[in-house]
């Protein structure tokens, strides 16, 4: 079993499948009255959050608590972090506290890699800069598999600001590992250079959303921040949503069975219209529920055995 989950690239196909299968068992247990399991009793999980992300933190917290781990929330706000303590000094503090796992959310790409060098416990990347967010990719893959029954051969479009998206990077890596065919869609300014060579040679790129939609099983919309306009990535919010936003007319171009995903938080009216977000094809609420199961699976597989 792997020690850390820093990148979706840490997962080969058997390990990724094991996590999804385990998440399935966890989800089944979530339906009963007693949700708590004794599995990680006596283990300490630290949520080390250098960015505000209530949804991700709560999801990890719920996952750890359902497995009976002791949870310590270490938030950058109101702690020594804002007084300029270095990541290394914080790591040594967590080490002294006996953290078995550190879940880290950080604005700098690669912070989980650095942290892993300084602590003995497992490190779980809960989103680092514009790099990766591997547990989001796991819950997305789990959601696709639950809805569509498979991942192998699935055609998935990831649409929007791929350049700044950690969700996109992790999804490309994980989905490709599991046999899906990923097409990245967005304005050329928001598709990073050499993306196929960087992540997976099978990755396709398109600048034309309309031509891609009829062939997709899954359309995943990424959040696009309107601030990107100031840096000339696109001229205006209106032009962006006209070219790359998902509205009802576009959704009708998708095959009957195809689903719409969004990692949240949504910019309703920008990349996705409310009617699409709230439609029966949208898995947005399921994704949140599946997040807890996927994170339970990750924590169990990292911490549930001999260290």
């Amino acid at each position: 079993m792997i020690k850390h989950l820093r990148s979706a690239a840490d997962l080969d196909a058997p390990t990724a499948t094991l996590i999804l299968d385990t998440a399935g068992e966890m989800a089944a247990l979530a339906g009963r009255e007693v949700k708590k399991l004794p599995t990680l009793r006596g283990r300490t999980v630290v949520n080390l959050f250098y960015e505000d992300s209530t949804r991700t933190r709560i999801s990890f917290e719920a996952a750890a608590k359902r497995l009976s781990a002791d949870v310590i929330n270490f938030s950058a706000k109101g702690s020594s972090v804002s007084k300029g303590e270095s990541l290394k000094d914080t790591a040594l503090t967590l080490q002294a506290m006996g953290a078995d796992a550190v879940v880290i959310r950080h604005p700098a790409s690669g912070a989980p890699h650095r942290l892993a060098a300084w602590v003995d416990g497992s490190v779980v990347n809960a989103g680092d800069g514009t790099h990766e967010h591997p547990t989001q990719a796991l819950l997305d893959a789990y959601t696709m598999r639950s809805r569509l029954g498979r991942l192998d051969g699935l055609r998935v479009a990831i649409v929007g600001d791929v350049l700044h998206s950690r969700v996109a990077r992790s999804n490309v890596l994980l989905l490709t590992t599991l046999g899906a065919q990923v097409t990245l869609v967005g304005p050329p300014t928001l598709i990073p250079v050499d993306i196929a060579a960087a992540l997976s040679p099978a990755t396709k790129v398109s600048y034309d959303l309309d031509s891609v939609l009829p062939d997709m099983d899954v359309v995943m919309m990424l959040r696009v921040q309107t601030e990107r306009m100031q840096d000339s990535y696109f001229p205006s919010a209106r032009e962006y949503s006209r070219r790359y936003g998902l509205d009802l007319a576009r959704m009708r171009k998708m095959p009957e069975h195809a689903i719409v995903m969004h990692p949240g938080p949504m910019n309703r009216g920008m990349e996705i219209t409310p009617e699409v977000a709230d439609s029966s094809r949208s898995t947005i609420v399921e994704q949140v529920a599946n997040g807890v199961s996927a994170r339970m699976a990750v924590l169990y597989l990292l911490l549930g055995g001999k260290a």
């Binding site: 094991l18 385990t22 399991l37 004794p38 599995t39 169990y300 597989l301 549930g304 055995g305 001999k306």
Partner: peptide
């Protein structure tokens, strides 16, 4: 009834895959 998540010897072995309940 899978009992893996209730075992008292989890830390003595590599992580086990779960069975079905």
């Amino acid at each position: 009834l899978d009992i893996t998540l209730y075992r008292d010897d989890l830390r003595l072995h590599a992580t086990r895959a779960l069975g079905k309940t």
